[in-house]
Design a protein around this nucleic acid. Structure first.
Lengths: 333, 333
DNA sequence: TTGTAGGCGTTATCAA
DNA sequence: TTGATAACGCCTACAA
């Protein structure tokens, strides 16, 4: 069964009446081959169905063309749009994404990076979790490029792309104030990843600075269902909040639906809501959510261009300020 | 810079005081190595940070461990959940997904398959588009396994997993009839992929058989925005439909939102809606959509288990009947 | 511009 | 159980 019959460069060479090297050169951009030789080689290759063996090529060149994408919960709207953008950018520079599914544990991220090393991946892009320093050091030492997206932790030799979560949270607070909201709340998941924490801290800090109190509620993963629970907890309080900043859009959707359908509240009249991520669903007319836009394409471009450009060896941090997209879930604006 | 310094089996062997073969055997499951040798090798490997080079291993074994996933519009909820399920299943059998982003053209699918051949992928799984027969033949001839999901076209030597779209559409018709709907409509995209066509044809056929007329409207890609347009077209007709079967859930969401917010209709009292796919958003309380569930996990399992098991050489077709998940967008039930 | 020779890191084979 | 040796398919000098 597993008798894979691939045609090798030698066979092409024989058929074209040239040497193996000539075949190799034909498929190496910028190598010196005569027009005539190239033509004959291409003809033979076409006829035989020859394809350069990227495994063998990677072995020689020490460059596999593979880039490892490490993600958990990849079917989440924000994640999947980021994956799409990154894989698109990678293909534009003739690289290809190896997708690795991790659970929330950092151990599984370590394993993923080990796999990346085994496949001699040119780079690894980490969207979820935080690997151990020893393993990232090994990656970097092996010449692998490392990109950490929204990980908010330092790693030597890596590119770190982070959003300015605190500043964004501050702007959310101001938006609520302008809308005349009095009783602010922050709805967070309880997974406690750095960026989620930063959003909460930034929001609370801004409020304290202004002498305003904030209710913070945390529950579950950053999903719709958690938003439902969070809304139930927040909206049954004695002093019902009239503004909720949600750690991400999925939570916001759950919060809005619950506020409307279960508590018969009107958005934005009774309660204002702001989210984070800019997932497509939030533009649907059932939500029309004011939210911070993660610039997915920009993130992908920065990551990939750094992979291809020979950058400095010391680590680089990139700070991006997400744009606040005004829609109908906040009064005024 | 690009000076990748990887530690090889030889270095490990030297440090452990054994031969390269011993190292190789240590990392080959089921090979015969003494406990003592294994221990010393592992120790040296650990100290040096050795990782088996999968590129070289793939070269020898003629088995790369790579499986090519060919998808377009991968950030769509249904697609991303399928990708997640498949990559998860692949990892369970120690394979790894190479993700390839294609646009709608079949040409790019051909290119993707060429890439799969170049990387000596053990298999390719096609979720979008339909490649040329010549290229799939080459894949199969090269010993690559081929899986076509919802492609509805025959390819020699491939596993074809299809949903029974016609039968599902028939059940949708019956559901509407039981709900007492009189004026039926089908909302489709105009991209005309086989499964979308089949759903339309099945629905229309069922209606004709029962002597009922159906309005069919087609527009744009299978996205929310198309649903908005389709609803506008359908709901401004003289004889406004009181039941709409949508080719997929995203269309259904757009249709429902538009019916409610723009036309002030009530679901399911004024109009019943059925979707297709079972994306998470449809369970949100703003939609609560009755829909056909694509058994994503089952599809993934079937695909991956076929890859690993040495199956017959002739092509195999698998027909799956999607379950109708009853929710609040259809009366009665 | 072309061909020859050697090596990349691994595994399979075979003899010890 | 172990070690030497020959592939795997390719690329890169080097010499012609």
């Amino acid at each position: 069964m597993n008798q894979k019959i691939f045609v090798s460069a030698k066979e092409v060479a024989d058929r074209a009446g040239v040497s193996r090297s000539a075949v190799s050169r034909t498929f190496t951009p910028g190598a010196s081959v005569s027009e005539e030789t190239r033509r004959r080689v291409m003809e033979a290759a076409e006829a035989l169905g020859y394809h350069v063996n990227h495994l063998a090529r990677g072995l020689m060149r020490n460059e596999s063309g593979l880039v490892c994408l490490i993600v958990s919960e990849m079917d989440t709207p924000y994640r999947s749009s980021l994956i799409r953008a990154i894989s698109h950018q990678l293909q534009a520079v003739s690289k290809i994404a190896m997708l690795i599914n991790t659970d929330r544990s950092d151990k599984s991220v370590d394993d993923a990076l080990r796999l990346a090393i085994s496949y001699r991946a040119d780079a690894s892009i980490i969207l979820s979790g935080m690997p151990d320093k020893s393993i990232t050091d090994l990656c970097v030492k092996s010449g692998q490029r490392l990109v950490l997206i929204n990980r908010d932790e330092e790693r030597e030799g890596a590119l770190m792309i982070n959003l300015n979560d605190r500043e964004a949270a501050h702007r959310a607070f101001i938006a609520f104030q302008r809308a005349g909201c009095r009783r602010l709340a922050f709805a967070n998941s309880d997974v406690g990843t750095p960026s989620l924490k930063a959003r909460e801290e930034g929001f609370v800090a801004a409020a304290i600075e202004a002498g305003v109190e904030v209710i913070v509620e945390r529950f579950g993963p950053t999903r719709y269902q958690s938003g439902v629970i969070l809304a139930q907890r927040l909206l049954t309080r004695e002093a019902r909040p009239d503004a909720i900043f949600c750690a991400n859009d999925l939570l916001a959707c759950g919060v809005m639906d619950t506020a409307r359908h279960q508590f018969k509240l009107t958005v934005p009249d009774d309660i204002c809501v702001i989210g984070f991520d800019y997932i497509e669903q939030c533009s649907w007319s059932s939500y029309d959510l004011t939210t911070f836009a993660q610039p997915v394409d920009q993130i992908a471009k920065e990551a990939v261009s750094w992979l291809t450009h020979p950058a400095k060896t010391d680590s680089i941090a990139s700070q991006i300020s997400p744009e606040l997209v005004w829609r109908g879930s906040v009064r005024g604006g």
